[in-house]
Design a protein around this nucleic acid. Structure first.
Lengths: 218, 218
DNA sequence: CAGCATCCGCTTTGATACTG
DNA sequence: CAGTATCAAAGCGGATGCTG
């Protein structure tokens, strides 16, 4: 990216990560940890392969990303965030929070990847019964199932493993589930949008934000 | 901007403000309040006039900016942030904080505007004697002088007025002053970089961050 | 003069094809 | 798997022109 040439820390930040795709690449590395080139491609639907290569080079030069040649058995390069890259987490979170209002209310068939759930889940869900027995929820919204689990009040996502025996399985379109966790839809409305649940609903309800105080009509 | 077409709130945010210049336009409106087209041009050195017009239209359509035709006497359009636009403040702050590390340590003659000071000042300065009598500092770093003043622990900037009688006047290159407030330079080093002061130095010292505990060589 | 719109050359992006 | 090469289309930056 051309530098803005402004002596302002915001402009400097944008000189480095303001380029198209850059913050989405950081999102991928933040949510998935060290990743191979092909994993990044899979998590960035729409990017051209030459752009991903270019951006990774740029970010490496800016010390946001580091490239590590993996051990001989695998013999492949792995990309990961540097300390400077991890320091972008508050930026990603605030942008993600701001962008939530802009999520499509209807479904203009945007691409979706399950691991993207980690951002809204950590923004909007927390365990309201963090004392109780741990709860796990399997979420199936498109590609790979993920597990939601509460870890000391916060809620995290992780890939499903073979030994998981979740308290609840939720499936359906991403729109319905995201509407639910952002409280734009209640459970009935989410079901009307195609959400399906099987198991202990309480496991989900203890993670959802408090329902808004019902606003009486003016 | 082309949409990323991803069902992710970060990607949606970048669909709207990820375009080149957009966040800098928001910075201008945030720091200066409602502004005319020409004021924006002055605060955005390097932007092409057609791009500013385009971006203002885009941001207006996205309900980030609103355009208001001023009263007949002035007969000019005024742009300001909407509620949604003001909600970008945490994003701007976090990006500005992250970008501070990337500020040039030497001076590759970047453009500078005094009102940009408001961001680092609110990020890094606070009044450590907020009980005491108010202090004002005039800062002259290039174009227009600005006044720093402590308002209930926080430090703000505002334009200098005729009636101001500051306790201290600081002048010099932006680099020296920014180095000082971010504690990358101490006062002596800032002076070596060309900083000049006239008046009560205590007024400045009570606003600066605590000096770092001196790190002994390993 | 404020507030753009138009035109033009250059750079960046995106889609596809190809390589070690 | 992990990219590079190629090329058309879109976007950007600079200059200039137009309109109240």
């Amino acid at each position: 990216m051309r530098s803005y040439g402004q002596f302002c820390s915001l402009a400097r930040a944008l000189d480095v990560v303001g380029d198209r795709w850059n913050l989405l690449i950081v999102r991928e590395l933040m949510l998935r940890g060290p990743s191979r080139y092909t994993d990044l491609m899979a998590g960035l639907p729409g990017i051209a392969t030459n752009l991903l290569a270019d951006r990774l080079r740029d970010l490496e030069h800016a010390a946001v990303v580091s490239r590590r040649e993996a051990l001989p058995p695998v013999a492949t390069a792995v990309f990961e965030l540097t300390e400077r890259g991890r320091a972008l987490e508050p930026v990603i979170r605030e942008l993600g929070r701001w962008g939530f209002e802009l999520m499509p209310g209807t479904d203009p068939d945007y691409a979706f990847r399950s691991h993207w759930l980690a951002l809204p889940v950590s923004l909007y869900l927390h365990d309201r019964e963090s004392g109780g027995p741990p709860a796990t929820i399997e979420v199936r919204l498109g590609d790979d199932p993920v597990i939601l689990e509460a870890v000391e009040d916060e809620v995290r996502t992780r890939p499903r493993t073979e030994t998981d025996d979740p308290d609840l399985v939720v499936s359906g379109p991403p729109l319905a589930f995201l509407g639910l966790i952002s409280r734009k839809l209640d459970l009935a409305a989410a079901r009307a949008r195609g959400l399906h649940t099987e198991g202990e609903l309480a496991a989900l309800e203890r993670l959802l934000p408090e329902p808004a105080a019902s606003a009486p009509a003016p």
